[in-house]
Design a protein around this nucleic acid. Structure first.
Length: 535
RNA sequence: GCGCCCGUAGCUCAGCUGGAUAGAGCAUCUGACUACGGAUCAGAAGGUCGGGGGUUCGAAUCCCUCCGGGCGCGCCA
């Protein structure tokens, strides 16, 4: 049983004994920041003092008295502190159970809370237009979205990774015209695409190819290849054009009309989105008969809702203004708008030793994600994109990320994993066979370095759950760094084998090393970063 | 003007569904291996958590307000 649930039930019983009624729904238990405040602490006396009308310190004292009279398992002391905190001191035995839990559950079973209950979730991300290479800014959304998908998979969801293709419209026309112009050796039109990549692609294009279709296919190939370099593979590439061909857009329009959610004004057709939380109504079909981008978007999300229980969209900050209208449209169509989560990633500033990397506006050149990957490597790119909350603007310093050899966190973390593997290999070479968890005497693990590692491993399931529910992979990155620090400290102070280390202690420590490997492998997998056995 | 995000150590950032003396990495300074990989470890120094109010036993965290920065507010996509 989770140690917190164990302490909670003890507290609940003590509260009942003191005549508190009704018992609080929630009893908070947390690890105090300061060591002298014990191993676990509860503020329950403070939390209920008002409703009970009693002094919190007094309630706390009573709880301490009753708990001390019959100490729960693992607990060595219960103390009152400050305004009324109830602090528990535990012996290390509760941590020794963690070791067994981790090894027994393994990489697939540990820290895998079932939050999704096999529901289907569709995670749509990147969705870069198929008319130019994926650039550095997309990298953040790509790594982030894939990590969200990994978190969902670990937490019991059925996940579809989806890429939406805006494969029609004026932008694609301009792209085709620009490509054709380059093929003829001419400059693209002023309102076309001027990037250097078009010169390369034009050179590849056969003379008799249709610039639109060939260019589209070429861009798609480029996207696939770039994403594959980061280990990102999509299940579905959804074509906007297909919704015209198969009537999905007409159906959507008919659906909206049937729900009396549209009206005509000034020759255009409008969606009454203000009825569902938008700040103004939106045009669906322009007076010239073309529809706006919004209508296919609505049709697309309508389609996604027919395929999944829950939708997650990863959008760049420049699209946050569209959230309200899309949610309004889904609400109009009878969907629960809360089942559509739109997460916004803030911008990325590329810099090189503190100097901003200029994106040439004149030529239309962008820094391609391929170039970033080639320069810093896929693991460093992914870890860097995922090390920080996507709510904050990110400064991505290419030189900092590349000089990883010395001080980059991704290497620090990967090195920890490699070290673990190195120890295990050394043990094998020495003919030491690691015993199964039930045959290890985990109680031998009493060194502070050892208990630090176990405490860290204990936290991983919580971290995974929070990262999943908050769409926050950076919590996993932070954990991985802490776990790596704990591992390096352990490595430094605690010899697993050799003179002066008993066979039993070697076995216990090998178990701890294996548990660490499990935890680190889980975290790195969630981040999509490789877990090397040697570096 | 309105909306969303951000403002925490010299730098890059965690911590934000309220907890006790605010953390990490980098950079700086000082130390540590005759053994499992020194891409490591230990210590020091570094702070008006943008400012001001409020709620609370308790606020970086919640509320209000102001300041600063980013991104959006189309019958563009």
């Amino acid at each position: 049983m989770d140690i917190r649930e164990h302490l909670r039930s003890a507290l609940r019983a003590a509260l009942a004994d003191t005549g508190i009624s009704p018992l609080p729904d929630e009893i908070a238990l947390e690890r105090p920041a300061r060591r002298e405040h014990g191993d676990w602490s509860s503020n329950v006396a403070l939390a209920i003092s008002k409703s009970v009308g009693r002094n919190p310190r007094q309630i706390g004292m009573e709880l301490v008295d009753r708990l001390s009279a019959d100490l729960p398992a693992h607990v060595t002391a219960v103390e009152i502190a400050g305004p009324g905190f109830v602090n528990f001191r535990l012996c290390d035995s509760w941590l020794h159970e963690v070791l067994v839990d981790v090894i027994t559950a393994g990489v697939d079973g540990y820290a895998a809370p079932d939050l999704g209950h096999a529901r289907n979730v569709n995670v749509e991300f990147v969705s870069a237009n198929p008319n130019k290479p994926i650039h550095a800014g997309h990298g953040r959304g790509a790594c982030y979205g894939d990590s969200l998908a990994r978190l969902r998979e670990r937490c019991g969801w059925q996940v579809t990774r989806e890429f939406y293709l805006n494969d029609r419209g004026v932008q694609m026309q301009r792209f085709a015209e620009s490509l054709a112009a380059r093929k003829r050796g001419e400059q693209p039109p002023d309102d076309g695409y001027h990037g250097e990549y078009l010169v390369r692609w034009a050179a590849e294009m056969p003379d008799d190819a249709d610039p639109f279709e060939w260019g589209y296919a070429r861009a798609l190939q480029s996207h696939r290849e770039t994403l594959a370099r980061l280990g990102i593979v999509f299940d579905e590439w959804f074509s906007e054009r297909s919704m015209i061909d198969n009537g999905a857009i007409d159906d959507t329009l008919a659906d909206l009309r049937a729900r009396d959610a549209v009206f005509e004004q000034d020759g255009a057709l409008w969606l009454r989105s203000t009825d569902h939380g938008d700040d103004k109504d939106r045009v669906l079909v322009k007076s010239d008969g073309d529809f706006t981008y919004l209508l296919p978007d609505i049709a697309y999300h309508r389609d996604k809702f027919s395929r999944a229980d829950h939708l997650v969209n990863v959008w760049g900050a420049d699209h946050h203004g569209y959230v309200a209208r899309l949610k309004a449209a889904m609400s109009v169509l009878g969907h629960d708008a809360d089942e559509l989560e739109v997460v916004i990633t803030q911008m990325v500033d590329l810099v090189r030793t503190g100097e901003p990397v200029r994106m040439s506006g004149r030529s239309g050149d962008l820094i391609e994600l391929d170039d970033i990957i080639a320069e810093v490597g896929p693991d460093a790119a992914r870890f860097t994109y995922l090390i920080q909350s996507v709510d904050s603007r990110q400064t991505f310093d290419l030189d900092e990320v590349k000089k990883q050899a010395m001080d980059n966190p991704v290497f620090y973390v990967q090195y920890a994993h490699a070290r673990i593997c190195s120890i295990e290999a050394k043990a094998r070479q020495a003919g030491i066979q690691r015993l199964s968890a039930d045959r290890i005497d985990a109680s031998l693990l009493v060194h502070e370095r050892e208990t630090d590692l176990l405490r860290s491993l204990f936290e991983l399931p919580d971290i995974v759950e929070i990262a999943c529910t908050d769409n926050a992979p950076h919590r996993v990155s932070a954990w991985a760094r802490e776990q790596a620090a704990a591992l390096h400290g352990f490595y430094h102070d605690c010899w697993v084998m050799g003179d002066g280390v008993s066979a039993e202690l070697t076995q216990a420590r090998l178990g701890l090393v294996e548990a660490s490997r499990v935890g680190m492998a889980i975290a790195l997998d969630l981040l999509g970063v490789s877990a090397p056995e040697s570096m």
